[in-house]
Amino acid sequence: AQASVVANQLIPINTRLTLVMMRSEVVTPVGIPAEDIPALVSMQVNRAVPLGTTLMPDMVKGYA
Rank of each mutant, 00 (worst) to 15 (best):
Ala1Leu: 11
Gln2Pro: 15
Ala3Asn: 07
Ser4Met: 02
Ser4Lys: 00
Ser4Asp: 01
Ser4Phe: 02
Val5Ala: 07
Val5Asp: 02
Val6Gly: 00
Ala7Val: 07
Ala7His: 01
Asn8Met: 06
Gln9Lys: 12
Gln9Asp: 08
Gln9Leu: 15
Leu10Asp: 11
Leu10Phe: 13
Ile11Thr: 02
Ile11Val: 08
Pro12Asp: 09
Ile13Thr: 11
Ile13His: 15
Asn14Cys: 07
Asn14Tyr: 15
Asn14Pro: 00
Asn14Val: 03
Thr15His: 07
Thr15Phe: 06
Thr15Glu: 09
Thr15Gln: 10
Thr15Ala: 12
Leu17His: 01
Thr18Arg: 08
Thr18Ile: 09
Thr18Met: 10
Thr18Asp: 12
Thr18His: 14
Thr18Tyr: 04
Leu19Trp: 10
Leu19Asp: 09
Val20Ala: 14
Val20Cys: 05
Val20Ser: 09
Val20Thr: 13
Met21Lys: 03
Met22Val: 13
Ser24His: 09
Ser24Asp: 06
Glu25Ser: 05
Glu25Arg: 04
Val26Arg: 03
Val26Met: 08
Val26Gly: 04
Val26Thr: 09
Val27Tyr: 02
Val27Ser: 06
Val27Asp: 02
Thr28Ser: 13
Pro29Tyr: 03
Pro29Glu: 07
Pro29Leu: 05
Pro29Met: 04
Gly31Arg: 01
Gly31Asn: 01
Gly31His: 01
Gly31Gln: 02
Ile32Glu: 01
Ile32Cys: 03
Ile32Pro: 01
Ala34Ser: 14
Glu35Cys: 05
Asp36Trp: 09
Ile37Cys: 03
Ile37Arg: 10
Ile37Ser: 04
Ile37Pro: 00
Ile37Thr: 06
Pro38Leu: 10
Pro38Met: 13
Ala39Trp: 14
Ala39His: 15
Leu40Asn: 00
Leu40Thr: 00
Leu40Gln: 00
Val41Lys: 05
Ser42Gly: 11
Ser42Asn: 15
Met43Ile: 04
Met43Asn: 07
Val45Lys: 01
Val45Ile: 06
Val45Phe: 00
Asn46His: 09
Asn46Asp: 12
Asn46Thr: 15
Ala48Ile: 14
Val49Lys: 00
Val49Thr: 05
Val49Met: 05
Pro50Cys: 08
Leu51Gln: 14
Leu51Lys: 13
Gly52Lys: 04
Gly52His: 12
Gly52Ile: 03
Thr53Phe: 08
Thr53Lys: 14
Thr54Met: 03
Leu55Tyr: 00
Leu55His: 00
Leu55Ala: 00
Leu55Gln: 01
Met56Gln: 11
Met56Leu: 13
Met56Phe: 10
Met56Val: 11
Pro57Arg: 11
Asp58Pro: 08
Asp58Tyr: 07
Met59Cys: 04
Met59Tyr: 10
Val60Ile: 06
Val60Asp: 01
Val60Met: 04
Lys61Asn: 11
Lys61Ser: 14
Gly62Trp: 04
Gly62Ala: 07
Tyr63Met: 04
Tyr63Val: 04
Ala64Asn: 13
Ala64Gly: 12
